[in-house]
């Protein structure tokens, strides 16, 4: 059984169809990339999976459960985490706190015992911070734990977004252009990092990428979309040579 199943997802904004009859499945442990030119509907698909948008029609099934139309926080609670294309860190919290917010959804203590710092809350709170630090440590960010997130270099901010998403204990991680704005060496390094967390945290990852070259090396399966529709799906070699992909994507903006 697939971990995630998207069944003819469609999203319309007024007269504009951003995503049209999009279907695919993700097996547990898979690393899959979603590519396509700007405005082809990649992020919209993420927003449909994570509940930020409600699909006009179609269903999202996760772990055998129909989660179509659920609120984003409930979807995250059942095991889907994501990052954002434009970095969205919490500026008023430090690096460690940013990660610990991701643990909040697993908190059992009620607001009352939290406010009065009762023992059950104190234990949980300490555990949250310990796990948060551990997570930062394993991603090589622990030395920045008490810094303001805005003071971090760009690449580290991206990593922090991933760390924060990992804090929610996801089964499925959605990465929205994690290498956007990075130099070629940095983005290659990031892809190594992604394969590393895929194994360490036993994840399934779906990632959006704009530059095809970046994902060629690490993703066994690639889905290419344009105008909200799948135009090709398969191995990197297959995608690379697919005439429709070349026409819609490579032909327009000669990236590869």
């Amino acid at each position: 059984m697939s971990l995630l199943k998207l069944d003819s997802l469609t999203k319309q904004f007024g007269g504009l169809t951003a995503v049209k009859e999009f279907s695919t499945g993700l097996e547990a442990g898979e690393l899959c990339a979603l590519i396509g030119p700007n405005g082809s509907g990649k992020t919209t698909i993420f927003n449909l999976i994570t509940g930020i948008y409600t699909p006009t029609s179609g269903t999202v099934t996760f772990n055998g459960q129909d989660i179509t139309g659920w609120r984003p926080d409930r979807i995250t609670a059942c095991g889907i985490a994501r990052t954002f294309q434009n970095i969205r860190l919490f500026k008023g919290l430090n690096v460690l706190e940013n990660v610990v917010v991701g643990k909040h959804l697993r908190l059992k203590s009620d607001p009352f015992s939290a406010t009065f710092h009762l023992p059950n809350y104190r234990r949980e709170d300490e555990a949250m911070f310990a796990e948060g630090l551990e997570l930062l440590d394993s991603l090589g960010l622990s030395r920045l734990a008490y810094e303001a997130p805005t003071s971090l270099p760009y690449g580290e901010q991206r990593k922090l977004e991933i760390a924060r998403a990992l804090a929610t204990d996801p089964k499925l991680l959605l990465l929205d252009e994690p290498a956007a704005g990075m130099s070629p060496t940095d983005s290659e390094e990031l892809m190594v990092f992604i394969t590393h967390i895929l194994k360490t945290y036993k994840l399934t990852i779906l990632l959006i990428e704009h530059q095809m070259r970046v994902v060629m090396g690490i993703c066994p399966r690639i889905i290419a979309i344009d105008h909200g529709e799948t135009i090709a799906e398969g191995t990197p070699e297959y995608i690379q040579n697919h005439p429709k992909v070349i026409e819609a994507y490579l032909g327009v903006a000669d990236y590869a």
Partner: peptide, 18 residues
Amino acid sequence: RAMSAIRDDEVAAEALGV
């Protein structure tokens, strides 16, 4: 902290399960 997260970025907070 969850409240501060909401203040800083509602969309991201909700995506983190808040």
